[in-house]
Simulated assay, not measured.
Amino acid sequence: MSVLLAIPARYASTRYPGKPLVSLKGPDGDKTLIRRSWEAAMAVRGVARVVVATDDDRIRDHALAFGAEVVMTSSAAQNGTERCAEVAASLPDFDMVVNLQGDAPLTPAWFVEDLIAGLRAVPDADIATPVLRCDGRALNGFLADRRAGRVGGTTAVFGAGMRGLYFSKEVIPFTSRSYGDAEPTPVFHHVGVYAYRPAALSAYPTWPVGPLEALEGLEQLRFLENGKQVLCVEVQAKGRQFWELNNPSDVRMIEAALAQIG
């Protein structure tokens, strides 16, 4: 099964314009966010082709300069999945498409490798996405964010066979008990990486945004709202931090994590 990995990147972010070109300091010097995300993608084994998907000439020119392949997409794409669908339409000779978002340079390679293996193992799944069991420290952090009115991480609930039931920016499922920092909890953190079968990906842009996707702002809910099977693949952090860069205040946190990786 041949795998295409696409890295969606847009310049016109409402929260952080120009984010893909922000510089991040690491042990290997200063590199942009999009370059670090591309390097993370290139470390994934079992991928036949890696492309940066963007609608912006500045991102295209920069990515080409450091050696990435670029596919230009339209500015009409509403999210990374729609951008990946455009890439898949222009490069149709792949059995699986992976979306490694351009603001996630800390994503461990084994997250993506486990995701690819998970989708391969379940033929009737349309899409797969990683989930990570929260320990008490992570869960308490999510709950503290919600009490303060902040949106923290996304959580996932799934049923038999790890089939996704719902994803939310609220902390679900509800649990009334407290947990020690290192104690496993029943709450799973959703990691924003996706592996799609081409048929489901090509159908995605044809579906209207449903009420749940609109309320939560979570693109993967469109698959659930249209009856598609979303496979949750449990992954292990192995001590790694893997924050996404969403706001300017996240730069320092990402750089600290890069320093730990070394």
Score class of each variant (00 low, 15 high):
E244N: 15
A214D: 08
L215S: 11
A214Q: 09
Y196S: 01
V230H: 14
A200S: 06
G227T: 11
L231W: 10
W243I: 15
L215G: 11
P198W: 01
E244F: 15
Y194V: 00
L231S: 08
Y194Q: 06
L215Y: 09
V209A: 13
E213S: 06
G210P: 02
L215W: 07
L212D: 05
V230D: 14
P208V: 03
V233W: 10
T206N: 12
G227S: 06
N226E: 03
W243M: 15
N226F: 04
A199G: 12
A214I: 06
K228T: 08
T206G: 11
L221V: 04
V209N: 03
R222T: 01
V191F: 04
P211C: 00
Q236M: 07
N226R: 05
L224F: 04
P208D: 10
A237D: 14
P211H: 00
Q236G: 06
E213W: 02
E244S: 15
S202K: 08
G239Q: 12
W243N: 14
E216T: 01
P205I: 04
P208T: 06
W243V: 15
A203S: 10
G227K: 05
L201I: 05
P205M: 09
G239T: 11
A199P: 15
K238S: 13
R240D: 10
W207V: 01
G210W: 01
E234H: 06
T206E: 14
F188E: 02
H189L: 10
L231G: 07
Q220N: 13
S202Y: 10
E219W: 02
F242I: 13
V191Y: 04
Q241M: 14
E225H: 03
P208Y: 06
V209R: 14
L218R: 02
A203P: 04
H189W: 10
Y194A: 05
V209Y: 03
A214P: 01
A199S: 12
A203L: 06
Y194D: 04
E219R: 05
L212T: 04
L201N: 08
L221K: 03
L224Y: 03
Y196A: 03
V230A: 14
Y204H: 06
V191I: 11
L218K: 00
W243D: 15
V193G: 09
R222G: 00
V193P: 05
W207P: 00
P198H: 00
L215N: 08
W243A: 15
P208N: 09
L201P: 09
A203I: 01
Q241A: 15
L218Y: 02
G227E: 05
R240K: 13
V233Y: 11
G217K: 06
L201T: 06
A199Y: 12
G217A: 07
L231M: 12
G239F: 11
V233H: 08
L201C: 03
L218F: 02
A237K: 13
L201M: 05
V193L: 11
N226G: 05
V191N: 07
F188Q: 02
G210A: 07
R197Q: 08
Y196T: 02
E216G: 00
F188D: 05
Q229I: 04
L224A: 05
A200C: 01
Q220L: 15
V230I: 14
F223S: 01
P208S: 11
Y194G: 03
L215P: 03
R222D: 00
Y204V: 02
F242G: 12
A200V: 01
V233R: 08
A199K: 13
E213I: 01
K238W: 13
P198L: 00
V230W: 14
P198V: 00
T206W: 06
E219N: 06
K228G: 08
A203W: 02
